[in-house]
Design a protein around this nucleic acid. Structure first.
Lengths: 234, 234
DNA sequence: GACGTCTTGTGAAAACGTGCACAAACGTTC
DNA sequence: GAACGTTTGTGCACGTTTTCACAAGACGTC
């Protein structure tokens, strides 16, 4: 417990996997499992055991050789490293189809990201209540952000409005943005951006389907080469 | 056009960026732009120009030195490579919050992925119409898939039901799965899986926020190190 | 307390992805 | 038709990520 500073840099690829481990470990803890080996965790996460060990080693040496990792302790350490020891309220920009779905999605608040506000530029949508939160007008964004000290914004607007939404979020003081709009947004270099693009994901799958078909056509002799499960994030 | 077979293997990282280029190029085409340089496309896509050129070179030598790329032709080539010359109907498993939002989201059908069916295990949900499609019972999945020759399935169930949904999809003959449930699913090696996990994306952002805070605390002297915009594909 | 079994933690190698830098190719102008 | 400015296509070096392989440490047993 030597109040250690987070000075080591965790590779981005590892950061993207830690949430997956965290969820699995939390589930195991719920199921009264008290310890787990890298092998078991790897199996559940669908990755290689060596990768799990290297990933966890960035957090520190929290395992016990010959035994494994203590589930509860690991959960705590990952949560601490990811900054999940407290809630991070988010503000959603755009109260359309997508924005409403996100606001109504419990998996958000349940995992420490309560919807602290939702705004839309369309007056017709203002006032409606989705997911227990009243939709406010875009012009009030800065107040919404300030009121709950929000640092994460979610863009759920149509593609054309995404850049304006990003600009407004940055102006309001948000420093991390999760973009659901099908547009590349431009932000200052010190703002973190995550992207979720449904069409892109489907098009990647289409490519694999296409290859499958081409492969089958190319030679009916060879057994299907086949793609394996792709990784996360991104 | 020497009916060239797609025998070269395109790196996964490139495949993930092609849809982004495609969208930008389509927009440019709509705006009557006829040619574009790697520099311009890179700027719009938020990536390095050399990367754009290398990515496009996997499709073939379709640029003209000293000039750039012909937008319309590039659009055609990328669409061909990604297998987007025809529609890929998808079946959605789970008609809850998320499933309904997805079914109602036009960006799906608009981009060549019409909702060919939606199923749920809950009889109370069967019969409802979302996004113009009637919800059918899970037990009819195989007929739904067969009827429209569907090869892509979308899992929009709660986490606990995701593995069952995946098994059912595979049994029904689907070969690509996009998983929105917060669970790692196990599938045969010749099935492609894409994953979209909102909580994971938010947790990655939380990590960056956390680091920002730690950095600021660590030394008030040093200027903010700051994370830059992260890549695609969640 | 020595031995055997188990599992971590980590160097080092291999694979993969990125970015620089420049020759080759194109269009234009004189 | 030569000279020039432009932009592609790609070899090469670099950085990151993955995987292997194994020494070091923990536990249980005799």
């Amino acid at each position: 417990m030597a109040g250690q500073r987070t000075r080591r840099r965790i590779p981005e690829a590892t950061v993207a996997r830690l949430p997956v481990y965290l969820r699995i470990l939390s589930d195991q803890f719920e199921a009264d499992v008290t310890k787990i080996s890298s092998e078991e965790l790897a199996e559940l996460a669908g990755v290689n055991a060596a990768k799990v060990r290297k990933d966890l080693s960035y957090l520190g040496s929290y395992g016990t050789r010959g035994v494994g990792y203590e589930v509860e302790f690991l959960v705590y350490q990952i949560r601490r490293e990811l900054g999940l020891t407290h809630d991070w309220p988010v503000v959603i920009v755009g109260a359309g189809n997508m924005g409403q779905a996100l606001a109504g999605y419990n998996g958000f608040g349940d995992r420490g990201f309560p919807v602290g506000g939702i705004v839309d530029i369309d007056n017709a949508k203002v006032g409606a209540v989705v997911g227990g939160v009243r939709v406010r007008h875009m012009s009030e964004l800065i107040q919404v952000v300030a009121a709950r000290n929000i640092s994460i914004g979610v863009i759920a607007t149509p593609g054309l409005a995404a850049q304006d939404a990003a600009d407004a979020l940055v102006a309001a003081g948000v420093t991390s943005i999760l973009n659901f709009a099908p547009t590349v947004i431009n932000v200052p270099h010190d703002i973190s951006v995550g992207k979720v693009d449904l069409a892109v994901e489907l098009q990647i799958l289409a490519y694999h389907e296409q290859r499958r078909i081409n492969a089958a056509k190319g030679s009916s002799l060879v057994s299907v080469p086949g793609e394996s499960r792709r990784g996360a994030s991104a």
